[in-house]
Amino acid sequence: MKRATLWLLAALALVALVILGVAWGSVSLSPRVVAAAALGHGDAQTIAIVRTLRMPRVVLAALVGAGLGMAGAALQGSLRNALAEPYLLGVSGGAAIGAVVAVTVGITSAALLPLCAFAGAALAILTAIVVARAMGGRADPRVLLMAGVIIGAFANAAIMVVLADAPPNTVRGALWWMMGSVSGADWRQVMWLAVYTAVAGGALAWMGREIDILALGEEPAAALGVNVDRAGRRVYIVSSLLAAATVAAAGLVGFVGLVVPHLVRAAGVRRHRPLLAGAALVGAALVVLADLVARVARPPAELPLGAVTAIVGVPFFLAQLRRLT
């Protein structure tokens, strides 16, 4: 298939999934009714379902997927590691600590919990950079990866300690959060993440050519005029903060940051600017689809989004595996 056709197909798939995501659920609506309700026509209940329940949820899912896809693409390129993903670098652990600590001290407000998660993630990112610097301050991405992995492991251990004697409700709340969910989405949350994704995604696109060069390795990148230390750190900070924002909004949604960039690469996109755009598109579509599956697979229960992204993503990934190697 031509490159342009693929882009068009991906965009159409995202649009179709967004419409489907808003239309399908415990109350199923026809696309025409959805469109009318979105514009404020129809009965009050339908308008409420579309406008305040489903639309923010679907848009939030799309933003989470776009953010994780871009963060994964940027990190894999700049760290030169096909296994790199935002959660590997301490972001998820840090955010989880922030959230779990918040829950155990009794903060459950929808406004404060994401802030605590974000603060935890930011702290983890900062620690990883400080540790990497102390370990030699060199541009070697392996040092940064190692620091992130170690901090993640430490965070997981700390979470277990905190949860060991916590009341069952707290444990359940923390666990549910760690499995990821966009069920509580509201427009304010969507606005925040939209601004965040746009700014961070724009910054990554701005650095896109630099990431192309970083992906060549330390010495070749230096030979092409890139300040490897500084550029690598910049990409790391921006993409980790972007991932942290998605975690703050929706908890831990695994698999997306790892796999989506590979899917886009398998389609023949190699330079990082188009790769970032493609990862945003495919990531958004994947998470919207996963959230739809999470809602409608076993009603009235909702499956954890983080598990569904993996279940939905694995077949895509396996189908592409041969083209990746």
Binding site: A82, R270, R271
Partner: peptide, 30 residues
């Protein structure tokens, strides 16, 4: 500097494949 001096370092291996032409084109980055 990179516009005036081109350096081919000792070792280089790509983690993510490019076409040879795409790779050569990266030389225009500076």
């Amino acid at each position: 500097f990179a516009r005036r001096v081109s350096v081919v370092t000792q070792r280089e291996s790509l983690v993510f494949t490019l076409s040879a032409r795409e790779y050569v084109a990266l030389g225009r980055y500076p």
